[in-house]
Simulated scan of single mutants.
Amino acid sequence: MKFAVFTVSLPEWTPEEAVRELAEQGWDGIEWRVVDQEPATGDVGFWQGNRCTWPASTFEQDAPRIKELTQQAGLGIPSIGTYVKSDELDAIEGLMRGAAALGVTQMRVQTGTPGPEGYRAAFAQRRKEFQAVAELSRTYGVRALIELHHQSLISSASAAARFVEGFDPETVGVIHDIGNMLREGYEYDPWSLEILGEHLAHVHVKNAVPRPERVEDANRTRWIWEWTPMRQGVADYDLLFSSLTRIGYDGWVTVEDFSTELPLAERVRDNLAYLREVTARVGIG
């Protein structure tokens, strides 16, 4: 397996700093965040003012620079982390052209959340939209990936399997994300991988833990999920990696750690050390 970092979790670093740090630490790759974000007005953050983000509107033009920067550091690019939605076909096409120019064969396309029409209608509509997305994928050789994500249309492996039924796995795939699934959609790791079958295209990892939050005016406790360092959360990574091995998965695993207890460089370095410890325990070379 090869390990990468999604740059949404590297908000303090510029792209130049990110490739240098990851290469020095021994990572195999970097998964670039691509989105048009609002100009920074304060402190940098994961989703606002993130310095390690390429604008979606100029991604195709920036591709040569991105390719040179990444290759000079000796890093691979497992996927492109876009935030484009399935009905934005012009934007998807431009991003796929940029990915193809980078030699990257997959990128994320979001299914979004149900609107006033309700879940069933939204599910059916997104599937229709993905017919056109799949055609673009076939044209440019860039597979469209759906990420398992809490509070989205596709939060579980079972929902994803229903969604991608009938689609060629070479054009539409799924990102397994145990961290997101802890919050919503979790299914026993061996079964969730089996459910996805040949549509399993990529793996994201992070960790989380439930915390009690007192609701004073209601005299009750509400449980919320908080992101934690990889070592400290609920996810059983020994089980996940042994399950990945059993199904023959030997692709990329990308970390997107949203915890903030440790300074960024230390956090990223320890995540790689932890992944190596886990894979060694379960017998992955």
Results as ranks from 00 to 15, higher is better:
Gly179Arg: 07
Trp227Thr: 13
Trp227Gly: 02
Arg51Cys: 07
Val255Gln: 02
Trp32Asp: 08
Ala265Ser: 13
Pro39Ser: 09
Arg108Lys: 09
Lys2Ile: 07
Lys67Asp: 15
Pro64His: 09
Ala159Asp: 09
Asn207Leu: 05
Asn219Ser: 12
Ala208Trp: 03
His150Trp: 14
Arg281Gly: 00
Arg214Cys: 06
Val5Ala: 01
Phe59Cys: 08
Glu12Thr: 09
Thr14Ile: 04
Ile224Trp: 06
Gly115Asn: 10
Arg127Phe: 01
Pro190Trp: 08
Glu147Ser: 08
Thr221Lys: 01
Lys206Tyr: 03
Leu240Cys: 03
Phe59Thr: 02
Val5Met: 01
Pro210Trp: 12
Ser57Met: 06
Ala159Ile: 00
Asp43Glu: 14
Asp257Cys: 03
Tyr186Val: 05
Arg65His: 10
Gly81Glu: 08
Met107Thr: 08
Asp189Met: 11
Glu117Trp: 07
Val5Thr: 04
Lys67Arg: 13
Phe163Lys: 03
Trp191Met: 13
Gly179Cys: 05
Val282Trp: 02
Arg231Trp: 12
Phe123Ile: 09
Ile92Ala: 03
Ala99Asn: 05
Glu60Gln: 15
Glu165Ala: 12
Arg269Leu: 01
Thr82Glu: 01
Thr14Gln: 07
Val104Thr: 10
Tyr249Ile: 08
Glu198Ala: 09
Leu262Glu: 12
Val133Gly: 06
Ala280Ile: 00
Glu213Leu: 11
Glu31Ile: 00
Phe123Ser: 05
Arg214Tyr: 14
Asn219Ile: 08
Glu147Val: 05
Ile80Leu: 13
Leu102Gly: 02
Trp13Cys: 04
His204Asp: 08
Lys128Arg: 15
Val104Gly: 05
Glu184Leu: 07
Val164Phe: 00
Pro114Cys: 04
Asp90Cys: 02
Thr171Cys: 10
Arg267Val: 06
Tyr188Val: 03
Asn180Gln: 12
Trp54Phe: 15
Glu184Ala: 07
Thr260Ile: 10
